[in-house]
């Protein structure tokens, strides 16, 4: 029995939101390969069905549950369904979020509706999911909650209000949950991705990713999140809570291109 055995996720049940595409899909793959059963929630049925099939091909149990993470009834129902089927949820990954902000208008043109949707999707969804499953985890005396924040949770983004505010909120609710839930055996951490080209980011109106402005000279590969997800979901990370696991090619270590978006192209 060595230290690497702690990475084994055999028999662990994971619920992940936004698990059908992008970084979420690669986290699903990594955790399934490490032994986890995975319930995948997402808005669109097609991608989450495909992700669930992939998990089954790897040899684990899976479910695909279409869920709007800003609808608290739907979120509660998601966890009720998984608990009814599998009995236990050991790990929650709150990964759903929207990068896109329509046209990125100036502050004075942002509608109530845009603000509400942005905050609901990027911040409230993490709260709704944790609220729905934390009692179950506390009753068992163990659980792991992983939120997905962003470099914009630490630094401002130009004309980027809801995402920046929402992710900043994710950073600090992660700390509050860590400090509050530790006594029930629950850890809560956040992943902080830098720039990873995905279907979602390709649809944004943000400036194009510039690999040459990232300290390591390239954008990230979504599959680089597999090992991080496994580590955070497994007993290997049991002494870590309230922390930010930053994987951004060095973006936040420097100052010019905080999260990989090119300030030079934006200044033009």
């Amino acid at each position: 029995m060595g230290v690497l055995d702690a990475l084994n996720l055999d028999g662990k049940n994971v619920v992940i939101t936004g698990g059908g595409t992008g970084l979420g899909l690669e986290m699903v793959r990594g955790m399934a390969e490490a032994g986890a059963n995975i319930a995948i929630a997402g808005r669109r049925q097609g991608p989450i069905d495909e992700a669930a099939d992939m998990v089954k091909e790897i040899g684990r149990k899976s479910m695909a549950i279409s869920t709007d993470v800003t609808d608290t009834a739907a979120v509660n129902s998601l966890f009720e369904t998984v608990l009814a089927e599998w009995g236990d949820v050991h790990v929650l990954f709150s990964n759903a979020g929207i990068v896109r902000e329509d046209g990125r208008p100036p502050l004075w043109e942002i509608t109530d509706e845009s603000w509400r949707i942005g905050i609901e999707t990027n911040l409230s969804s993490a709260f709704y999911c944790a609220r729905a499953i934390s009692k179950h985890m506390a009753d068992r005396g163990s659980g792991k909650i992983v939120n997905v924040a962003s470099g914009f949770g630490f630094r401002g983004g130009r004309d980027n209000y809801m995402y920046t505010a929402g992710k900043g909120g994710v950073v600090n609710i992660t700390r509050a949950m860590a400090v509050s839930l530790g006594r029930y055996g629950i850890t809560c951490n956040a992943i902080v991705p830098g720039f990873f080209p995905t279907e979602a980011t390709n649809a944004t109106s943000m400036s194009l990713p510039r690999g040459d402005l990232i300290p390591v000279g390239r954008t990230g590969f979504p599959k680089e999140f597999g090992p991080v997800a496994v580590w955070l979901a497994s007993a290997a990370s049991d002494y870590m809570t309230g922390e930010m696991f930053i994987v951004d090619g060095g973006g936040l270590a420097g100052g010019m291109a905080p999260t990989g978006y090119g300030p030079i192209s934006e200044l033009a």
Partner: peptide, 21 residues
């Protein structure tokens, strides 16, 4: 090599001490 997009970071493993007020 599988952590090649992680650099310049300090990762705290401290039982939650840094998260505390």
């Amino acid at each position: 090599d599988f952590s090649d997009f992680t650099t310049g970071q300090t990762i705290f493993v401290d039982g939650g001490a840094m998260a505390h007020a």
